[in-house]
Every structure is written in structure tokens, then in C-alpha cells.
Simulated scan of single mutants.
Amino acid sequence: MDERKIDTEGCQGIKFRNVTPAVFSCMKKKLQAYGIETSPGNSGVFEGNGIVADFSWDGEANLVIEIRERPLTTYCGQVSGKLKAFMRECQGF
């Protein structure tokens, strides 16, 4: 059984800017391909691979992700690094 850590210390929120509708859609597809289910719409929860996070996109440019749970063996930096890599791929960098 995978153990998860409730983030009582809290990973820092991850804020992305210049997130167009196409980039937001791409980001959700990347998460789903990675095994993480995402709520429909501009805000909600994504969950999978031991990670639970809230997300909120303003529909224009700003996306905020707050990690609530993660596997005990996974650091905040690993999760945020993967999210940032997905974002770079979606923005074409």
C-alpha cells in the first residue's frame, strides 16, 4: 500500500503566468497521460500517483496549483519540477 503524506508543512503554491486556453488544455492532457485525473472546468482537483492537488485557472493567464497530498517518498520539489516541465512542453519551450 502506498503511503501518502498530507502536506501539513505545505508545499509552496505553484503559480504559472501566461497560461492561454491552449496551454491550459495541454497541461490537463499531460497530467491525464501521466495517470493523474483532473476535474473538468477551470478549477478543481487533480489526483493520481499518490498526488492530490487543487488547481485554479482564471480563464485568461494565471494558473495556481496547491499540492495537498503526496507520496512519502516524493519531495515538493519533485512534484513542482514535473509540473513545470509539463508547462514548458505545453508552451513550446
Rank of each mutant, 00 (worst) to 15 (best):
G59L: 11
L83Q: 04
C26S: 12
D7F: 00
K84L: 15
S56R: 08
A22W: 01
S80H: 01
V52K: 15
E37N: 13
V52T: 15
F24I: 01
G77N: 14
V64W: 10
E69G: 00
D54I: 04
G44K: 04
K5H: 14
K29P: 01
E3T: 11
E9W: 11
E69Q: 14
N62D: 14
V79P: 00
G92N: 06
K28G: 08
C26Y: 08
V45E: 13
I14H: 06
F16N: 02
I65Q: 08
V52F: 03
D58Y: 03
E89C: 03
D58E: 10
I36P: 04
C11Y: 07
Q12G: 11
Q78V: 10
T20Q: 09
M27K: 02
K82E: 09
T20I: 07
N18F: 10
W57Q: 04
E60T: 09
K82S: 07
N49C: 06
A22V: 06
E60A: 06
C90K: 09
I6P: 02
E3F: 14
D2N: 11
Q12I: 02
L72M: 13
A61D: 15
S43F: 02
C76P: 02
E60Y: 09
P40R: 11
K5V: 13
N49L: 02
T74C: 08
I67E: 01
E3R: 11
V79A: 05
N18E: 15
T20V: 01
E60G: 04
K30Y: 05
E69R: 09
D2A: 11
P71G: 10
K15P: 00
A85G: 05
N42S: 14
G10Q: 12
T20Y: 02
D54E: 13
G13K: 14
G44H: 05
M87S: 04
Y75V: 09
V64D: 13
V19K: 07
D7V: 03
M1G: 14
C26D: 09
R88F: 15
R68P: 05
K82D: 02
D54C: 01
D7T: 08
V23L: 05
I67F: 02
T20G: 05
I67N: 03
V45W: 10
R17W: 05
A53F: 04
N18T: 08
D54Q: 12
K15R: 15
R68S: 12
C90A: 11
G41A: 07
Y75M: 13
L72I: 10
R70L: 12
K5C: 12
T38D: 05
A85N: 09
F46Q: 03
Q78H: 09
V79Y: 02
K84M: 15
M1W: 14
L63K: 01
P21I: 06
T73Y: 09
K84P: 00
K29R: 14
E37K: 15
Q91D: 07
T8R: 15
